[in-house]
Amino acid sequence: MNRIKVFSPATVANVACGFDVIGLALDNPGDEIEMWLSSEPGIRIREIHGADLPLEPSKNVCGVALQALVKKLPDPLNAGFEMIIKKNIQPGSGIGSSAASAAGAVVAANILLGEPFPKKKLVRFAMEGERLASGSAHADNVAPAILGGFTLVRSYTPVDIVGLPTPPGLWVTVIHPQIEVKTSDAREILKHKVLMTDAIKQWGNVAALVAGLYRNDYGLIGRSLEDVIVEPVRSILIPAFQELKIKCKEAGALGGGISGSGPSVFMLSTSEEIARNVADVMNNIYQPLGLEYHIHVSTVNQEGVKVISR
């Protein structure tokens, strides 16, 4: 096999209280990457559809992530890859656009090479793409994109990723206002110090969210979806954010918050019916604002990057 095409999913990072440590993968939307081995050494991005992004590998998250993988090969100087990227996740959307590209590139390359690296090792390579995109090599998007489901980053030094269970029947509704919030800009407005009382509350919510996922305790999950550190600062960048949270919960959502650095907002629900009712509520709130937006209703992607064809 010397050619492959993969689907790389959008992701929700932070999942409210888990800033930089918890994420989940979606079944839609997602990027598509077609990659093939080349007899000519080096990495070449032939085409990019759906976004105006650089073809130069050192300036593209796919290229940078793949370069990190190639460096760990026994014969890196002779490795050759070419690819075509189809971006279905808009950059700056808050649902892991850069992560999907980086994750898809390293998974595709690993399969073409006969899978010399375990999936968790691929997370470290994909993080280098995130470093290029945002200035920070965070894993809360790339880990679920590669591994699927919910993931927890226990440590960054060294990188230690823990897979978490997904309760049955869990659905995600995401609204993406068509405004761009760059991750690097969203990080700049964060406070560098937090109150001990806020930190204690946040730790409790993170621990309870993990416990809720293991116990299939939807009530506990809902009570844990509270961010007292990051959301109060970032929410001012998102139109009608507080109204979204209140009315979506009234419609039956367990709760939710800002997806990644925004502007997307996610809500978790216990059934497709509730998730689609939540989508209707989001639509009713945003339609009068005169702002373009997209709404995605999805199950949790348990597989991560998927092979479309080979």
Rank of each mutant, 00 (worst) to 15 (best):
A103I: 12
D198W: 06
N283I: 01
K245Q: 13
V297H: 04
G169H: 10
E231T: 08
I4G: 09
K247A: 09
E82G: 10
P57N: 12
I238K: 06
T151I: 06
P9M: 00
I295W: 00
S264G: 09
T299V: 13
P144F: 00
P177Q: 06
D27P: 03
E56H: 13
T299M: 13
M127T: 03
N110L: 10
G304S: 12
S264R: 10
P165K: 08
G252Y: 05
G23K: 10
H192S: 15
E82P: 02
Q67V: 08
G135P: 11
L244W: 01
P41H: 14
V297N: 02
I238T: 05
L164D: 01
V162D: 14
G42C: 02
S93W: 09
G80W: 11
A65E: 04
S309Y: 13
P74H: 05
Q90L: 13
I43P: 06
T11D: 03
G204L: 09
F19D: 15
I295C: 10
S97P: 00
V230L: 01
V281R: 01
A275K: 06
N88P: 12
A253K: 09
S259V: 04
E82D: 00
L113V: 12
H192E: 15
I33S: 03
N78F: 07
V265W: 12
V230G: 04
H176A: 09
P165M: 05
K120C: 04
N301V: 02
I161L: 10
G23T: 10
L220T: 08
S98T: 04
A208P: 00
S38D: 05
K306H: 02
T166C: 12
G290Y: 08
P54K: 07
L147T: 09
E273T: 13
F266Y: 09
L237E: 09
M83Q: 06
P118Q: 01
V159I: 14
G256E: 06
A13M: 11
I236A: 10
K72C: 14
Y214N: 13
N88D: 06
M83A: 11
A13L: 07
S269G: 15
V106A: 08
A208T: 11
A25G: 13
A51E: 07
C248W: 08
V194L: 13
N277I: 03
S271R: 15
E34R: 15
A126N: 08
V281T: 15
M127L: 01
L225E: 02
A145V: 03
S39Y: 11
V153A: 11
V181F: 09
G30R: 09
A65K: 12
L254M: 01
Q90T: 11
A207E: 05
I179T: 06
V123M: 12
